[in-house]
Amino acid sequence: MAVKTDASGRRAISLEVELPGTVEQVWRAIATGPGISAWFVPSTVEERPGGMVSFELGPDMVSTGEVTAFEAPRRFAYVEPGWNGEAPPLGTEFVIEALSGSTCRLRLVHSLFTDADDWDKELGSMETGWPPFFGVLAIYLQHFAGQPVGSIRPGGQFAGTEAGAWAALTAKLGLAGAAPGERRAAPANGAPPLAGTVTRVDEGAHHQVTLLLDRPAPGVALIGTYQWGDAVNTAASLFFYGPDGAAEAARQQPVWEAWMAENFPASA
């Protein structure tokens, strides 16, 4: 964790990632509601300073805030006052820099104006949580930029350790020992339809694998496990692109929910 402080008392973390695409393409992906929804969570952005932002992080979990900078196509910032109970407001800033005609650098800074370290753990979790989603963003920009999306986020729980949950989840989905560049497919005996090329594997603070999907439809799957409090959770974020993306998401939602309920019931 690399939380930094400055003379004003601000505590912050920063991340950088190189992305395919023009400045305009990256801007649309990180500063508009449809763009953010295509690689992160369903989102709304009023595209002006003082406008509202809203992020649907999960069932009954919506974070809202206010746009503080909208300088197209370079800088987008917002603040979320109620992001975590009694914590000070969380500021987020995205800055885009062109590296070439088809590559950009995206810099993200999260800031808290406090000299207390009470929320450093949460800031650290953001530092490790963003990179897998930036991986989804890179795939979206390279293969699906500007296309509409339908997405689902099924999840479950596991009665054991996170490592145990990861082993069970990847075994059941045909992803055990996956490595970037491999094509993997879920077994046909009861698992949801899932097949594609592995693009990223994370086995650090969290366990996650990312696939460029060709089945059940063109898209991206981010499959992983994490611990929240005392609960060990399994989670999948699936994005389906193109004019049939929303319909495919609607078809897959009950399939994945039933599979998670059978294999990783919330009662665990």
Results as ranks from 00 to 15, higher is better:
158 F>M: 07
111 S>I: 04
119 W>S: 04
210 T>Q: 10
140 Y>H: 13
106 L>K: 02
148 P>K: 00
155 G>P: 02
217 A>M: 06
173 L>A: 04
202 D>G: 07
98 A>Q: 09
202 D>S: 12
211 L>V: 03
98 A>P: 02
210 T>C: 12
217 A>H: 05
154 P>I: 08
127 E>N: 11
90 L>K: 01
110 H>C: 08
205 A>L: 08
120 D>L: 05
157 Q>D: 11
125 S>F: 14
166 W>N: 00
135 G>E: 14
179 A>F: 11
176 A>P: 07
177 G>T: 13
95 V>A: 15
204 G>I: 10
157 Q>G: 05
208 Q>S: 15
108 L>Y: 10
160 G>Y: 07
205 A>I: 06
219 G>L: 01
121 K>T: 12
219 G>H: 01
176 A>S: 14
160 G>D: 02
152 I>R: 01
120 D>K: 03
84 N>L: 15
155 G>A: 15
230 D>I: 06
129 G>F: 10
176 A>D: 14
125 S>D: 15
202 D>F: 07
129 G>Q: 12
120 D>P: 05
195 A>K: 03
217 A>Y: 01
196 G>D: 04
122 E>W: 09
128 T>L: 13
127 E>I: 08
106 L>N: 04
139 I>N: 04
110 H>P: 01
136 V>K: 01
194 L>R: 00
212 L>H: 08
180 P>W: 08
109 V>L: 09
222 L>Y: 02
86 E>Q: 14
104 C>E: 03
186 A>H: 02
178 A>I: 07
186 A>F: 01
203 E>A: 15
212 L>Q: 10
111 S>F: 02
188 A>G: 11
163 A>R: 15
103 T>Y: 10
202 D>T: 09
169 L>C: 08
190 G>C: 12
118 D>H: 11
97 E>Q: 14
175 L>C: 04
87 A>E: 06
190 G>Y: 06
91 G>L: 07
158 F>C: 03
153 R>A: 13
152 I>W: 06
95 V>Y: 00
128 T>D: 12
196 G>R: 02
117 D>E: 14
190 G>N: 09
149 V>T: 04
95 V>Q: 06
155 G>Y: 05
105 R>P: 07
114 T>L: 05
194 L>E: 00
218 P>S: 10
151 S>I: 06
130 W>H: 11
111 S>T: 14
203 E>K: 11
188 A>K: 02
206 H>D: 11
163 A>K: 11
227 Q>I: 05
179 A>R: 15
217 A>I: 00
131 P>I: 07
85 G>I: 03
86 E>K: 12
164 G>D: 12
176 A>V: 12
107 R>F: 07
206 H>Y: 13
128 T>Y: 15
99 L>E: 13
109 V>W: 04
226 Y>W: 14
126 M>N: 14
222 L>G: 01
199 T>G: 03
100 S>N: 14
220 V>T: 08
145 A>T: 11
99 L>A: 14
127 E>R: 08
183 R>I: 11
188 A>P: 06
133 F>I: 11
104 C>T: 14
167 A>P: 00
168 A>N: 13
151 S>W: 00
209 V>Q: 00
184 R>Q: 04
101 G>Q: 14
228 W>F: 14
108 L>T: 12
115 D>H: 05
214 D>G: 04
138 A>M: 10
143 H>W: 10
